[in-house]
């Protein structure tokens, strides 16, 4: 018996045309085609979507939350990137 663990795939579903694919979960499969079929059986039993993407989990490179300080922190002192930062008189505020 083959005891090798099947590779893990991340599953993304487009719930409706026009919307982004969204991550819904993961599953094990031999290959991408099989992952697609499993995803259909697991995540689309109630017509939850119109399109599925499967990606090998090992192909995903992720940022680490522990690095957040050096990675994102400088954004916090840039309030001028937000529309609400610019105070306009109420007559013209609807912009």
């Amino acid at each position: 018996m083959n005891k090798q663990t099947l590779p893990l795939f991340e599953i993304f579903i487009r719930s409706k045309r026009g919307l982004d694919h969204r991550h819904v979960g993961s599953l094990h499969a031999e290959d991408a085609v099989q992952a697609l079929e499993y995803a259909r059986d697991v995540y689309l039993r109630r017509s939850e979507g119109v399109s599925i993407w499967v990606v090998r989990s090992s192909d995903i490179t992720a940022s680490q939350e522990s690095d957040v300080a050096s990675f994102y922190d400088p954004m916090d002192d840039k309030p001028y990137r937000h529309a609400t930062h610019y105070k306009l008189p109420k007559e013209v505020d609807n912009m």
Partner: peptide, 19 residues
Amino acid sequence: RAMIRICKEESFHQRQGYE
């Protein structure tokens, strides 16, 4: 989808210009 993302970011551009 690109337009939705862009509009969200762009609102500050017009306001800073007017201000």
